[in-house]
Nucleic acid binder design. Structure first.
Lengths: 348, 348
DNA sequence: CGATGTGCTGCAAAGGTTTGCAGCCGAAGA
DNA sequence: TCTTCGGCTGCAAACCTTTGCAGCACATCG
């Protein structure tokens, strides 16, 4: 039913190769012929068969995007940005969801490998060595993690965590908790490292709670522990956990920010809508999505030649860029001055 | 670099057709041969080239999912469910975002048509006739809209709206507003139709406000209008608008639910996290995603035969199912009894 | 007039897989 | 012993496009 290149060729009285060139190398075909071919193509509703093209060029014009959990509001803006940027360059995006499961992650990237020109690994939970391994099978850009020798786009959560801690120190807090995220998260390690240093530098004390599921539930479940720990301020792995925690503290009778200050990370849309509005470290997720797509596409626009080529494997001298995007502390209503000692109900 | 069917054939000493059959029709090949072939394939890391397969079978094993706005928290659970279900059946999902733009919607579905075996049109904003037109080009399952002659999966927002209105009537409200959603939304029309009937049946009065952007901003912008209208209760097109409205009312000094009751639709995760917790009509989004994938796949698992077949076009006698999923009113804290007349500050 | 070049087009191979058909071998039935 | 049949495997065409190469017509230059 659908028109093929042959139909167009017949209709416009030229050879199929001329039709092909009309689309892929217009400058090689006579303007007159070109308009005629284009007219016929338009007429027949011809669209090149991407599978056939992929078969011979070795490029599918698809990219894979693997995320830990689509339902986590951190990801959709990133997906949206990546999808838009990709479409802009005539690429389509496969989105896959791993449910925070490293094994599913590995399986998925293998399943996708043959079907895409590259994959964006977003907030991967698998090990660095595994990532390096898959990167030998398919071009990879890593988001939210640093892997030596691979193109990465990161958000500077370290700096964000430092800003958050300094904000808290400035408000007088001396006992601070860090709510850890999921095992395997680079962001998590990074935050811990920098937060610990910043707290130490401020002469304060840091309590580590984790690892945890990076969800409201995960945050809410920690309310009791936070209360017992006697801290007056908390930096959470992400906004979702922060919000869950606030909820949990509330049901324990602890008020934010009067009794406890809470800071999240990500600045998801939601963080502006809760009460109190959340103080948080804004991460440039959309920019990250766009940048990653650009890096991937630039990265493999040169390499492959007729499927049989040596692919995008070892030995190439491209400089694998690593981009660090800036974060920013957004102060809203969930942080406040340390409560006066007498009012400290935390130990009650 | 990647192993082809030929490599496997050579390694296991059989013809490529036998290798092919080992995967696509195992019962046709001798068990001994089969294990040998499988071993070699495993060994070489062979994965069939989907482009080549698509070229000859005419089936890409991809499906397209077009949504109005990935960043709207209504969609991610649906995407997630659809993606999981598809993967389960060895399909991949292209996700595309139209930014609530009907034109982008049409363009996208055309761009996708050749590359997928079918598309899920989720909450489409384009006209019915356009939908019917694209459905002649590519198999379509429509979500959140009823289109005669096409497979549809809908959520019974009509019934949900009725339950919501009756809940409000039961609390004594007699002046109710309906916050409309985007132009072109079937859900919107459906809610309006049923809500109007229910309000009339209860001897109350309905004020229509819309159409609006289905976002927090869209909801917040209506706060002033809601106040002026003097209603004591509001049913919003979705949770996002409801939450935005509550926010907006708050900054006008109106409290929810003491001064105004608010009900949303969707029961997004967020609605449990705001304060007050939102009373809302829960829609089974995940189920809708799964169902739609099933309908699409069952739908075109029979039709196509070697690309040249007549495709999934007119004349087929399959019964195009239309599924209506049930909704449920979830009463939380954003609705309460009508305020006593004296306390009515709405007109102030 | 011959040589060279330029601009455009046709030819045909290649890419990896599926699948209808034919062929082979051994067993069972006559 | 000769058919017949079933189980398994090989053969080759087909799917649609891209692309290196060759060919053609024509113009330019020496």
């Amino acid at each position: 039913m659908p028109a093929t290149i042959r139909d167009v060729a017949r209709a416009s009285g030229v050879h199929i190769s001329t039709v092909s060139r009309t689309f892929s190398a217009p400058h090689l075909v006579n303007p007159e012929t070109r308009v005629r071919v284009l007219a016929c193509a338009e007429d027949l509703g011809y669209r090149p068969n991407r599978a056939a093209r992929a078969l011979i060029t070795g490029r599918t014009h698809n990219i894979g995007l693997i995320v830990a959990d689509i339902a986590n509001p951190f990801f959709p803006p990133l997906i949206k940005a990546a999808e838009g940027q990709a479409r802009h360059r005539d690429y389509h995006v496969f989105v896959a969801d791993t449910n925070e499961d490293p094994a599913a992650e590995e399986e998925l990237v293998h399943a996708l490998a043959k079907q895409v020109d590259g994959v964006l690994l977003c907030s991967p939970r698998m090990s660095n060595s595994l990532i390096e391994q898959v990167s030998r099978e398919v071009p990879v850009v890593v988001i939210n993690r640093q892997v030596a020798g691979l193109p990465c786009v990161m958000m500077d959560v370290g700096q964000g965590a430092r800003a958050a801690i300094e904000h808290l120190l400035g408000l007088g807090h001396r006992r601070i908790a860090l709510l850890g995220g999921p095992r395997g998260s680079w962001t998590n390690r990074e935050m811990r490292r920098v937060a610990a240093a910043a707290v130490r530098a401020g002469g304060a004390e840091l309590t580590l709670l984790g690892p945890n599921q990076p969800t409201e539930t995960g945050g809410g479940a920690l309310a009791e522990q936070v209360r017992r720990s006697g801290v007056t301020a908390v930096l959470a792995y992400n906004d979702l956990m922060a919000i869950g925690l606030i909820e949990g503290l509330d049901s324990l009778g602890l008020r934010v920010p009067q009794d406890v200050s809470v800071i999240g990370v990500d600045d998801i849309a939601l963080s502006r809508l809760t009460r109190p509005k959340l103080t948080t470290v804004a991460t440039p997720t959309a920019a990250a999505g766009r940048t990653a797509v650009d890096m991937l596409l630039q990265h493999d626009s040169d390499a492959p030649r007729g499927a049989r080529g040596r692919g995008a494997v070892a030995g190439d001298r491209r400089t694998t860029a690593q981009v660090m995007l800036q974060t920013e502390l957004v102060v809203r209503d969930s942080t406040g001055p340390v409560p006066p000692p007498g009012r400290d109900v935390a130990g009650a």
